[in-house]
Each structure stands twice: as C-alpha cells, then as structure tokens.
Amino acid sequence: MSIGDITTLLQRGIFEVLLLAAPLLVSALVVGLVVAILQATTSIQEQTLTFVPKVVIILLVLGFLGGWMFSSLGDYTVQLFRMIPSMAR
C-alpha cells in the first residue's frame, strides 16, 4: 500500500465523518442562533432555554436521517473491510 492509497483512505474517512456530522451540527447551529436571537430580544437568560431545543432538534434529525447515516457508515465500513486483503500484500 502506497502513501497515495493511505492519503486517499484518510481523505475518504474524513469526508465520511463530515458528511455524517454536518446535518446534526447545522441543525444545532440554526436552533442555537434562533434561540439566541429570541433571548436577546426578550432579555431572557435561561440556560435550559438554549440546551433543550438543541437536544430535541438533534434527536429529530437523528430520527429522520438515522437510517441514511447508518447505511452510509455501514457501506464505508464494508469497503474498508474489503480493502484489508490488498493492504496485507
């Protein structure tokens, strides 16, 4: 296995992690921004007001996209295991 193969393998792994984490992070970011704007306009500074909506939206996104995330990660893992014999040469 050459340096180029290892680099490609690492790039694909990083891309897979970013692809799977992006929907969760973006949804939490959007909800946090909306809650922060609401807190700034109403002068309510309750800590749980920022935490609870983020947890709820992350659970909803996981509920909707969990199947896709699991199958994508499973496909990537199967590809990695199929590459093991060529790495041993």
Rank of each mutant, 00 (worst) to 15 (best):
A22W: 09
G13W: 11
S72P: 00
T77D: 03
T41L: 12
Q45K: 11
A21Y: 06
L38I: 12
G13P: 09
L65Y: 05
S86N: 12
V56G: 04
L10N: 09
L80W: 10
T42F: 04
G63K: 09
Q79D: 13
D75P: 01
D5L: 15
V17K: 07
R89P: 10
V30I: 14
E16N: 11
D75S: 08
F70E: 00
V31T: 08
F51G: 10
F64N: 00
L49K: 08
T41R: 12
A22L: 15
A40T: 06
A88R: 11
S27E: 02
L29V: 04
Y76L: 01
P53K: 04
M87K: 09
E46N: 12
L24Y: 09
I84Q: 05
F51R: 08
T42C: 05
M1E: 10
D5K: 14
L73D: 00
P85N: 08
V17W: 07
L38R: 09
L80K: 06
M87W: 15
Y76Q: 02
F64S: 03
I57K: 04
T42E: 06
E46W: 09
I6L: 15
W68H: 02
V61F: 02
R82E: 15
T50S: 15
A21P: 06
S71K: 04
V52I: 15
F51Y: 12
L20Q: 02
F70C: 00
L73V: 04
V55E: 01
Q79M: 11
L73K: 00
T41C: 05
P23E: 07
M83F: 14
L73G: 04
V35P: 06
G32T: 04
Q47E: 13
I14V: 15
I37S: 05
P23I: 01
V34N: 02
A36L: 11
I37G: 04
F15H: 12
I3S: 11
D5T: 11
Q45A: 09
T77V: 14
E16P: 03
V34I: 15
G4M: 14
S71V: 03
A40F: 06
V31N: 01
T8A: 15
V35H: 05
E16F: 07
F15T: 13
I37D: 07
I44D: 06
L9K: 06
M1C: 09
V52L: 13
E46D: 13
S27H: 05
T7A: 15
M87Y: 14
W68A: 01
V17N: 07
L10M: 14
S86D: 13
G63M: 08
